[in-house]
Design a protein around this nucleic acid. Structure first.
Lengths: 350, 350
DNA sequence: CAACTTTTGGCAATCGCTTGCCGCAACGTT
DNA sequence: AACGTTGCGGCAAGCGATTGCCAAAAGTTG
């Protein structure tokens, strides 16, 4: 700050031309450069609309005054805010941290500001945010939206949005390749000799939860495995105890768990109860969140490039906001998954 | 801007007054309520400036139109943006997640929007953000600022800000009670019979890192312990391996580590090398981040209410932004700490 | 060289809201 | 009864940019 430069002469009190508490506006720049404000505006946002020489003069003036355009004013007159709201169901959950990291990164790269909102797993709050921020965001990224298809369709009618982990016909989405992931996991368990498997369910409003169970059910049937299902559980470590107990009661020798958080909670409970993982029961989590590699035992999990999902979602949104005439924007991105095998899975007990 | 307005009656297709794609402005509300826009504005932001009856009529009209004021326009004319920027050195780090969660929560409660920025551990980026967002945020929360005292003083001159984990005479701050924390930790180690202790240092630009070492050094001297120091290390799990190796080489029987991330990384490396924790070496982390309780072994750590720190920081900032005449706003908040003893510390080896 | 097209920059109208100032009523006060 | 007070609402001037429209200047063309 306090850039003490004074370009021209400014004879007078030397040194004191800068700062002076008042922030410079486009008019100050225009004055200094000897042009109209409209020209400054153009020079700064549509560079080829003005003569190169003029532009340079303006840029110099702007730099000299340390000018930063007011996003407020800009937004008001242009209708764009250069901000994108990212809605997540639970900031507490490390899974979303990765998404946030991805979106943050990509938004910054595109010159956008990220408005982070926690919807607390509630579709009402989600709708409310969508409504209230309508004016202050150019678009929305909905991570694991809790909205119904109808709501989603309606909302996407009026505002640009991209969903993550929630397929939808009405809005572009980034999804994880669940089927393939679950199949890989079951394959892994089958090869270890497991026959009785259990799906530990997450929030019923979660689309990905429903998807996982669907594939789990079909695929285990196809392999002649006995499929159980317990839940729903809140996807937090604290629900792990209940989940673990329920899982044990089913008699299953292996579980595929809605997410790592829950899986880690189960791990803790099982250890408390003296049930050995993986000797007595195998656990597979999902998401490969921070911590999955150093919990005890390290968790076998369905890994996916979550951060990248955030990035891709942003790109899709931005290309929707600033369409390139020729190219249609992508409507669906499927992120690949792979099974990261660690120590929480092992041969089925005899 | 294609504003299609026609004020008066618009008798014609009945019923079609609502929605019609165009978002309602304050003028629409005023018209519907039969008052001037200024009255609407007041009714909505300074309720007792207008007659109760009038206000109700306006509120009703607003509700009917589904009116949401434009934060852009509001900001432009009022000079306030109702947004606060939260600057963190590294969104990757779970420690900051807790802060973000805290600030998010409190900001929402106060009707503010959170603008999240990752400064990537760089003081330049921090300054740049501070500068660029000057107009778009009413205030700043600097978590673990990397600025020098002088820079901080200068910046806080022009914009309201609160620092977290960084004491400063120029700006209100929320800090962790480091001395007490380190003393507790050393006390714990002493009682377990440790004599050779090592401080595993984090980023040299981190104020809390410097503080911790200072207290560590003084206090261990006072107890006649042999104090080593290694580092600096990047505070990430990946640096843990180097840190672990260096720590072992010092011959210390216990380490206090700059943060949990690094400590967890060390735990992994030690385990790889077959060095037992806590039998061969004890490890104490700091922050009690997500994962500290379920890593292997669970980490003894200096815990502090981080999320609350975020909340407190926001309260301090907001009370600075909207001062209550009578009450001076707090300049310093010290968050208490306590040692959470888990399984990574034990008696010194013989 | 006249007629046209392109570039380039200025004018001024907005964008949607806030707020200082003013005026009108309805109420007390002496 | 004349004169403050107060309470309440309207007028209109901005806030700081963007942008449609226009005119002058510069470049092209036959």
């Amino acid at each position: 700050m306090a850039t003490t430069k004074d370009g021209t002469g400014t004879a007078g009190t030397p040194e004191r031309r800068v700062v002076t508490d008042k922030v410079p506006t486009i008019r100050d720049v225009a004055e200094l450069a000897g042009v109209a404000t409209s020209t400054v505006s153009r020079a700064l946002s549509k560079p080829d609309r003005v003569n190169r020489y003029t532009r340079e003069r303006i840029e110099e003036a702007a730099a000299q005054l340390n000018y930063v355009p007011s996003s407020q004013a800009r937004g008001l007159s242009s209708g764009r805010t250069n901000a994108v709201a990212v809605l997540v169901p639970d900031i507490t959950n490390p899974f979303y941290f990765d998404i946030i990291r991805g979106t943050q990164h990509q938004l910054k790269a595109g010159g956008y500001t990220q408005l982070l909102v926690d919807t607390e797993e509630s579709s009402e709050m989600e709708l409310e945010a969508l409504h209230k921020m309508r004016r202050s965001a150019d678009g929305f990224i909905l991570a694991a939206s809790r909205l119904t298809d109808a709501q989603l369709a309606e909302v996407s009618e009026t505002q640009p949005l991209v969903t993550i982990n929630r397929a939808s016909t009405s809005a572009p989405s980034v999804v994880i390749d669940t089927p393939s992931a679950v199949i890989q996991a079951l394959e892994h368990l089958a090869s270890l000799g497991h026959h009785r498997v259990c799906y530990v369910s997450g929030p019923p409003t979660s689309w990905s939860n429903r998807m996982r169970w669907k594939v789990f059910e079909e695929e285990s049937a196809q392999r002649g495995m006995e499929a159980h299902r317990i839940g729903p559980f809140t996807p937090k470590t604290t629900s792990g105890a209940a989940a673990a107990d329920a899982a044990v009661r089913t008699g299953a020798t292996a579980c595929i768990v809605f997410n790592d958080l829950l899986a880690i909670g189960m791990l803790q409970r099982l250890r408390e109860r003296g049930i050995r993982v993986p000797e007595d029961i195998s656990i597979i989590g999902s998401d490969d969140i921070f911590g999955a590699d150093f919990c005890n035992p390290p968790l076998t999990t369905i890994a996916s490039p979550i951060e990248q999902a955030g990035r891709v979602a942003v790109s899709m949104l931005l290309s929707q906001l600033n369409p390139v005439p020729g190219r249609a924007s992508r409507q669906l991105a499927v992120m690949p998954t792979h099974l990261t095998i660690r120590a929480s899975t092992g041969p089925a007990p005899l």
